[in-house]
Design a protein around this nucleic acid. Structure first.
Lengths: 337, 337
DNA sequence: ATTAAGGATGTGACCATTCACAATTAACAC
DNA sequence: GTGTTAATTGTGAATGGTCACATCCTTAAT
């Protein structure tokens, strides 16, 4: 039984107990090959006996590496990739530190958040914000040489990044509706500051144009359930006819489904609805939601993996890893009657 | 324009530039009162000029405090209080480090996770697991004197903790159903290893007993949407009659609603459904879900606040802060016809 | 037997900060 | 002008590790 307040044992304590120098203990901990078998065993036994754990703060100070990755994101509530990121980071021997920014953070706020980085000797940065604030070179300067990866940023951006091809996902959704015979397609979009939202919107407009169609009634929501509900209601009130609705994310789609239900509009008989994201609950909506799936597991895994390899090799060339969404067809879409 | 790879400036660099000793710079940084006004200004200007940031690793090493709180939890996917915790921690000047455990982690795993604690000089621990693994004294020893708070643990546990009175919440739900005239109440419970699930189940049984009623068909789910769906289906297949259903969380309730819908069973006309948690989407289910709300914001806020005050005052007496859930009545419940 | 090579171990300095204490300076009263 | 006190500033050691280098001891080759 050890006392709770007992001073933690150090490298030196272990060395003394094992009858070797502190350097030898250090070698054992860091798996240095040149330690005699017998000595190593003696040291290991002393470590066990003293319940010794190397002090990371001291190690970070001496080596300049903390084995901490920092995640900068704008709204943790809906961070579905978060668990996968934590898991991946751990798997690679890192711990993830999470910092939140306000929804549409000012550059100043980002700058301030990046200060932690210097202070905590962060090894790498994952930046997961809806808006790209800085150019690559600006970002590079701000990060003071710490490697970073933009997660879910704009396609084509010239920074280390892992992104979904939003355009492709959007095409899948619209093409699906067109194939079903719909030509009056309404939209509930996300905030235009949100880069993904903007891309989804633009793609939609351009595809319809390419088919000689024009966009039906279109309103802007904020990605939350209530806004989907309110917006769908306004869409109905507007009186403009539509037979299909493209919603920029599943959460708003849920709100829209509710609004339709309350107005006696049947989905998919009267209106087909397509969402975006494929959140876990989407398959159990009423009706189950046809949506565009983004595999956030892969996003997280790729982001962390890329970042860690940048840390290992700082001169690695800048790349953008592109992931492709896929369409999941469920009960909320049907052929136009 | 500073070079990206430039060596970070230190206390000494600032001191030299300001023409004072490093100690004086340290005093300025830590807002020590006894520094001459002019000197302080000179130092501050040098700090700005060099873009100096104190090194947290060094500070942690010297002071033994890291200003990091560690959160140990079992499944990050459904951690709704997480954002609030991060926010609260930041507000109090701490950063939150998140470690995940497997769903029903072995004591060994917890022990291993606690090692980070020593290594990283963690200031305090938030433990958010569905099962209490250790007694207070065991926990105290494991934490090696680092203060900890159990979040959402069992009511009555003799450890620093912040909990919801599950029994009360459950009573609200059942009483509501009884008031509506239901006396054949079915249940979808959570895993019995999950302390909350068990409490909800036990309370339900005992309340019904007190009213001279017996529990209708009851099956166990795993808190996920699909299990709610599958379990509800089995409930129907069993043929045992029931007019109301109590589901141990909203997520499973969503699955159950879907199953009922597919079987042509109307909610609430044929069956009333009550959930638990009041997740954000619950108000938009079809029908909107009557449920027991747990204010996770308050849970998070209280937990962090309590932990931080324990850090400030280690001899603080052990307490349990109890929060009370409330019933939110929506469209999924109706009087028995 | 002698020597070179290399494995095993130890020593001193250093990482960026704080702490305890010492030393200097200024301020004020007598 | 001197002493006393308080405010301001500086010094050395410590925190718990790592790194570069030096030393010692084997071992095998000449």
């Amino acid at each position: 039984m050890q006392e709770p307040q007992v001073k933690r044992s150090t490298l030196r304590d272990v060395a003394e107990l094992a009858g070797v120098s502190y350097q030898t203990v250090s070698r054992v901990i860091n798996q240095h090959p040149n330690v005699a078998r017998r000595t190593r065993e003696r040291v290991l036994s002393a470590i066990r006996q003293l319940d010794y754990r190397p002090n990371q703060a001291a190690k970070a100070l001496a080596t300049g590496r903390s084995y901490i990755l920092q995640l900068l994101m704008y709204d943790i509530r809906y961070s579905d990739p978060l668990p996968a990121m934590i898991y991946q980071a751990k798997k690679q021997g890192y711990t993830l530190l999470i910092s939140e920014l306000s929804p549409f953070a000012a550059p100043e706020e980002i700058r301030a958040a990046l200060d932690d980085l210097t202070a905590r000797m962060i090894d790498g940065l994952l930046i997961y914000t809806p808006t790209p604030f800085f150019s690559y070179t600006e970002m590079r300067d701000l990060c003071r040489g710490v490697p970073f990866v933009l997660v879910g940023a704009a396609l084509g951006i010239k920074s280390p990044s892992v992104v979904f091809d939003q355009r492709h996902g959007c095409e899948l959704a619209i093409q699906h509706l067109l194939d079903l015979g719909h030509c009056q397609i309404a939209e509930i979009s996300g905030q235009p500051q949100h880069i993904d939202a903007q891309l989804r919107h633009e793609t939609m407009v351009s595809i319809l144009k390419a088919h000689g169609l024009t966009l039906g009634p279109s309103l802007e929501g904020d990605f939350e359930v209530p806004s989907g509900y309110a917006t769908a209601q306004k869409l109905l009130d507007s009186g403009e006819p539509f037979t299909a609705l493209f919603v920029a994310n599943d959460r708003m789609a849920l709100g829209a489904l509710r609004a339709f239900h309350e107005h006696g509009i049947r989905v998919p008989e009267d209106v087909s609805v397509v969402g975006f994201d494929d959140m876990g609950e989407a398959a159990y909506f009423n009706p189950p939601l046809t949506t565009v799936r983004q595999d956030l597991q892969v996003l997280a895994q790729q982001s962390v993996e890329y970042l860690v390899s940048m840390i290992g090799n700082p001169s690695m060339p800048v790349q953008q890893r592109v992931l492709y969404p896929e369409l999941i067809v469920r009960g909320s879409t049907a052929p136009l009657k």
